[in-house]
């Protein structure tokens, strides 16, 4: 039973990435949340790709402030 809930980090990481593109289904959301609750590594991954999104969206601003 527990194995049906805890799937590999690879799947969790891919789901975290896809969650930034589209709404996950309810079962996907529940399973991802369960995995993240138990897995620090994937929690770090998830936070990091969200940070990268914040960073990337700042690029135009950074280019604007670049010295000529």
């Amino acid at each position: 039973m527990i194995h049906r809930l805890i799937y590999p980090c690879e799947q969790a990481a891919k789901l975290s990435s896809r969650a930034m593109e589209q709404a996950l289904t309810m079962p996907e959301r529940v399973r991802l949340r369960l995995h993240l609750m138990m897995c620090e590594r994937c929690t770090n991954f998830s936070r990091q790709i969200e940070f990268l999104r914040r960073a990337s969206r700042k690029i135009p601003e950074v280019l604007e402030n670049d010295a000529d």
Binding site: R41, R47, Q48, F51
Partner: peptide
């Protein structure tokens, strides 16, 4: 190759 055959992190993401 971020993951091994079992889907585990080869080089686990550290806390930033």
């Amino acid at each position: 190759g971020a993951f091994d055959a079992g889907g585990n992190w080869v080089d686990p993401p550290a806390d930033w």
